[in-house]
Every structure is written in structure tokens, then in C-alpha cells.
Amino acid sequence: MNSVQFKPEDAAHLARAVFTEVGRVFLGKPQVVSHAVIALLARGHVLLEDVPGAGKTVLARALARAIGGEFRRVQFTSDMLPSDITGVNVWSPRTEAFGFHPGPIFGNVVLADEINRASPRTQSALLEAMSERQVTTDRQTRALPEPFLVVATQNPHEHHGTYPLPESQMDRFLVRLTIGYPDREAERRIVAMQGFADKVETLVNAVATPEQVVAAQAATSAVVVPDAVMDYAMDLVGQTRGTEALEMGISTRGAVSLIAACRGAAALAGRTYCLPDDVKEMFLPTCAHRVVLRGRGTAGAAAREEARALLTDLLARTPVPGD
């Protein structure tokens, strides 16, 4: 007996396996994959901002498959209602009672496609479910399955008839990722593989069970953040608040998310403690969508690049602790 399950080392093995499996079909973008896995470990959610056809669906499906979880997909449209996501109580004549028909959100990995097409009301239903990890219909609360990872996508180049996520809602995503174009070699292989695109499930092996992922998440939350690293992260966060170019710096929730993501990064690296390297790696993906540029907002590709540049500059100016 006497075994301590959920060791961080085990979490690392699991996360590495998931990372490798997803990487087999999602080619040429290991960083995106690792950030998605980190979000999974840190019990966060992912916002993908990219043009359609960049492989967002493949990423989500592969992730779901690798952890042996259920994949669900919601294609957002402007006429969608909250209940279309959460599910409804339906009268069943056979049992003569209302039975709950779970919506598409009841999955382990949920792809919320083109979230900015839905009305704010529907968006907020999704976002609420994301953070509460439960759904309430007709005063009845139902827990969502664990693990629960939402991969939402948003096309930043599309403006007509869309409702871009407000700043406060962007805050709910642990990381915002952009995929971008793969390099020539990777793209070649993607194109060659295209025939199998619908068969992601056949190409990716399930290397973990949802229960193991929950355990890995527990282990991740126990990763130690040394004082020096915490101070470094707080230095970075604090500086976004005093910057002239930023109208709004990183919120406290943002700081919490940054540290959570650092724990995930450390766990993925097989460490039981965080390093400044984790902070540096996760600072842009976790924070770039949380700052508001003066007069620009968070929306738009240009604003996104400007925010990234600003935060990159901040990283270059902040001294790293140690020796």
C-alpha cells in the first residue's frame, strides 16, 4: 500500500504522452499543443484565434481522443439560445416526466466554434458553464464531466454580424493561442494526410483515461511556486498596470491564471516546482488577451500583435531572479 498516487512525475508522463499523441496529427506547432496540454493540466480553457482552416478542430478532437474523453462540438450561430448549449428538459410521454436532454457542453473536450457569432446571452451561458463547471437548468444543477476543457475559436478578421468577446469575458480563458501557418514541410505532410482528416480518432491513441487526467490536474495544483518565482511573476503583472500604453493591466484573476499556467508548464516539464522559465513561457499566452491597449481594445489582429510586442518588451526589461 503506502503509495502516493498522483505524483507530479506521473502527471508529467501522462501529459507528455498526450502531447506526443496530439502532435502526431497536429503537425508543426508543438508550442500550441503544449500550451493546450498545459491549459488542460491547469484546469483552464483555450481560446483559439485564427482564420478558419488552421486546424482548430483537429487540435480539439485529437486532444479529446488522447485523453480518452468525449468530444463535443458546438457551431455557434447568431440564432442560438443558451439552452442549445446547456441542454433542455423534455417531456417524455413514456415515463410521463421531464427528462433532461444534455446539451453539447456535456463533454470532456468541447469545441466552441466561432464563438463570436453567438449573441452575448448565449456566449455568457457558455462562459458561465466554463468557470462554474456546472450547468443549471430549471433550478437543477448538474455537474459537467471532469476533465472539462473548452476550446473556443474566434475569427479575428471577421467583423460583420459578430459579437466580439468583451474584455471581461476574455479573462475567463486561461490561454489565448494563435496557430498561424505551418512551415512548408509540415504543411506538405498535412496536405498529404488530408484524406484521414475525419479519422483523427483512428490516428490518435487514447493514452490516458479521464480519471487519470483529473489526478494529473490534482498533482499539478500541488506544484510549488518558490517565492522568488512568485515575486518575478508579480513584478511582471505589476508592471502592466503602470504602463502608459495600457488602459487596463492584468487583473488579479489574470495573475492567478498565470501562476496556474506556470504550474501546468512545470508539471509538463516533469518538475515539482516552477522556474522563471515557466513564467516567461506562459506570460504571453496567458496575459496578452487580458490587457487593454489605450484606445484599441482587445479585438483585432493588430491590437493583438501590439499587446504581444508590449508584453515581450516587458519580459526583456524585467530582471530574472536567481544568483
Binding site: A316, R317, P319, V320, D323
Partner: peptide, 23 residues
């Protein structure tokens, strides 16, 4: 580590303030 760092400094290699040890 300090010994290593001194050797590195002699070789003209110094850690930038914003650089982590691993970088």
C-alpha cells in the same frame, strides 16, 4: 554554479538580467 559563472564571464558570456538561467 558560481564557479561556472566565473568561467563563463572569463569567456565573455554573461547572463542578461532578463534571461533565465536555463535560457
Amino acid at each position: 554554479y558560481l564557479r561556472l559563472r566565473r568561467a563563463l564571464a572569463r569567456a565573455g558570456l554573461r547572463r542578461e538580467r532578463s534571461e533565465t538561467q536555463l535560457e
